[in-house]
Amino acid sequence: MHEMSLAGGIMRVVEEAAAREHFTRVKRLAIEAGALSGVEVRALRFALESMAHGTCLEGAQVDIDEPPGTAWCMACSESVPIRSRTDDCPKCGGHRLQPTGGTELKVRELIVHDD
């Protein structure tokens, strides 16, 4: 389950921010895991909850947004929505698609408690 290592990376980002910004508790963590990122959102949420005990993330609300995938079709020169990297172009049926969105995993927002 690579989501456990992804959760570890997210924890490091949060801990580095806590050290830099001098906060001890997170109220809300907003993450973006695009539809084409290869991340299983339920597994990522479980991993984060498992690792949060005893950290500044303990008790925090974790929101994970899943933006849809988009790609550039080289055949019809259009930006099109896709659900999978193996999809064909929904406009022309072409097979040469270059993903352009929904591939990211990022911490979008971190709201902390005022202590």
Results as ranks from 00 to 15, higher is better:
Glu58Gln: 12
Gly9Gln: 03
Glu16Gln: 11
Arg12Leu: 12
Leu110Asp: 06
Ala18Trp: 04
Val80Met: 05
Ile82Leu: 09
His22Ala: 11
Ile64Cys: 07
Leu36Trp: 02
Trp72Gln: 11
Ala33Lys: 12
Leu6Gln: 07
Gly38Met: 04
Gly94Ser: 11
Leu48Cys: 11
Thr103Asp: 09
Val107Lys: 08
Asp63Trp: 00
Arg20Gly: 08
Val112Gly: 03
Gly101His: 01
Arg28Glu: 15
Asp63Ala: 08
Gly101Thr: 00
Asp115Leu: 12
Asp114Gln: 09
Ala43Gln: 08
Arg28Ala: 14
Arg20Ala: 13
Phe46Trp: 12
Glu66Ala: 10
Met11Glu: 04
Glu49Cys: 04
Ala30Lys: 13
Arg42Tyr: 10
Arg25Thr: 02
Glu21His: 15
Thr70Leu: 10
Arg12Cys: 01
Thr86Ile: 11
Ala18Glu: 08
Glu32Arg: 15
Thr86Ser: 15
Leu36Ser: 12
Pro90Thr: 02
Val107Thr: 08
Glu15Met: 14
Phe46Ser: 07
Phe46Arg: 11
Val112Thr: 15
Val14Trp: 06
Leu110Asn: 03
Gly94Pro: 10
Met1His: 04
Ser5Cys: 02
His2Tyr: 06
Val41Arg: 11
Ala71Glu: 05
Ala18Leu: 06
Ala47Val: 00
Glu78Arg: 15
Gln61Ile: 02
Arg25Val: 01
Pro90Glu: 03
Val39Gly: 09
Glu16Ala: 08
Leu44Pro: 05
Val107Tyr: 07
Ala19Ile: 00
Glu40Cys: 07
Thr86Pro: 01
Lys27Ala: 09
Glu49Ser: 10
Lys27Leu: 07
Leu44Lys: 03
Leu110Ser: 04
Arg108Thr: 10
Met1Pro: 05
Pro67Ser: 10
Arg25Glu: 12
Phe46Leu: 13
Ala75His: 11
Gly59Pro: 03
Leu44Tyr: 04
His2Gln: 06
Arg12Glu: 10
Leu110Phe: 06
Pro68Asp: 08
Asp88Phe: 09
Ala18Gln: 06
Arg108Ser: 15
Arg85Asp: 12
Ser5Arg: 03
Leu57Glu: 03
Glu3Ser: 01
Glu58Ala: 09
His113Leu: 00
Glu109Arg: 14
Cys73Arg: 02
Leu36Arg: 02
Thr100Arg: 11
Ile82Ala: 02
Leu48Glu: 07
Arg45Leu: 15
Arg108Met: 06
Ser37Trp: 04
Asp87Val: 08
Asp115Gln: 10
Ile111Met: 09
Glu66Val: 15
Cys56Gly: 05
Val62Thr: 09
Ser50Phe: 04
Glu104Ser: 15
Leu29Asp: 01
His95Pro: 00
Ala17Trp: 02
Asp88Ala: 12
Arg28Thr: 15
Gly38Cys: 04
Val80Asp: 13
Ala17Asp: 10
Arg42Leu: 13
Ala7Thr: 03
Pro81Phe: 09
Gln98His: 14
Arg20Cys: 05
Gly34Val: 00
Asp88Arg: 14
Cys56Ser: 08
Ala43Gly: 06
Lys27Val: 01
Ile31Ser: 05
Thr55Gln: 12
Glu49Asn: 11
Glu104Asp: 15
Asp63Leu: 13
Gly101Val: 01
Cys73Phe: 04
Leu48Tyr: 06
Leu6Asn: 06
Pro81Val: 07
Arg42Met: 11
Asp87Asn: 13
Gly69Pro: 09
Arg28Gly: 08
Ile64Trp: 05
Arg96Met: 10
Gly38Asn: 03
Gly54Glu: 09
Arg108Glu: 14
Ala33Ser: 10
Ile64His: 08
